[in-house]
């Protein structure tokens, strides 16, 4: 908990008159699972897209691995999973993996090994040769996660990774996050599910484009005198 992997400094963004992000400053440290908590429309996805290199802030800067984003060589070290499953449904899972692996320059033995590892991590090894169009929603979500892990990124950015996934699977996905964390991967995850937020090492609460609070779940509950994360969120939101 010493090096900031992600450093967001006074970032604002507006689409026309609509202020999506308003002066956000935040640091995420090596090896932690950081949760970005907030209702839909709060600006989570916009912030996360900036960190993935897809968008740029109107004011302020984003630093990843101490370098200013966006940069192509930084993008290589980031794993990103968007809110919607970006998969080629007319190909098999294996073909999807092969394609993305090649984009990140993996080949030969290494590629094969990584493909097996990530598929095992999301328990999809038995469905490797299936067409993605035959996958269920949860399976697609897990395949997307597997793809974002292929190139062993140091920073994993996951936008609503467990939406539409049943509780059993959700638990297994969180367990895989913990295993990744143990290997030193920093994980940034957005969520609007309060009980999921409790599993993060630290939380950032975001509402109407503003960061209303940040800290460990315990700190946040103590400071606001709330019994759970949801009450804490409401307390910080001024309700």
């Amino acid at each position: 908990m010493n090096n900031p992997i992600v450093s967001i400094q006074h970032v604002s963004k507006n689409y026309g008159k609509h202020q999506v992000l308003n002066d956000i400053s935040l640091e995420i440290y090596e090896g932690e699972i950081f949760g970005l908590l907030g209702p839909s429309g709060a600006g989570k996805t916009t912030l996360v897209k900036q960190l993935a290199g897809l968008e740029e802030p109107a004011q302020g800067e984003n630093y990843i691995f101490s370098e200013k984003m966006p940069r192509l060589d930084l993008i290589k070290r980031i794993g990103y999973m968007a809110q919607s499953d970006a998969l080629y449904t007319d190909l098999t899972a294996k073909e999807n993996l092969e394609f993305f692996a090649a984009l990140y320059g993996l080949s030969g033995k290494e590629k094969k090994q990584r493909m097996n590892e990530v598929m095992e991590l999301v328990s999809l090894t038995d469905h490797l040769h299936k067409m993605v169009s035959d996958y269920s929603g949860g399976m697609k979500r897990r395949l997307s996660l597997a793809i974002s892990l292929l190139h062993s990124p140091g920073l994993l950015i996951l936008d609503e990774p467990t939406v539409g996934i049943d509780p059993v699977l959700r638990r297994s996905i969180w367990e895989s996050f913990k295993r990744l964390k143990e290997k030193g991967t920093t994980i940034l995850v957005t969520t609007h599910v309060m009980d999921e937020a409790g599993k993060c090492d630290r939380l950032g609460m975001i509402r109407d484009g503003q960061l209303i609070a940040a800290g460990t779940p315990k700190e946040l509950m103590q400071q606001s005198g709330a019994a759970n994360i949801e009450d804490a969120f409401l307390a910080y939101g001024g309700a």
Binding site: A52, G53, L54, L72, D73, I75, K76, I78, Y80, A82, S84, D85, A86, L87, Y88, T89, F100, L103, Y104, G105
Partner: peptide, 11 residues
């Protein structure tokens, strides 16, 4: 389908 965005988050 979002795959273009996905491609653009790759190198």
């Amino acid at each position: 389908t979002g795959t273009l965005e996905r491609l653009l988050t790759s190198p």
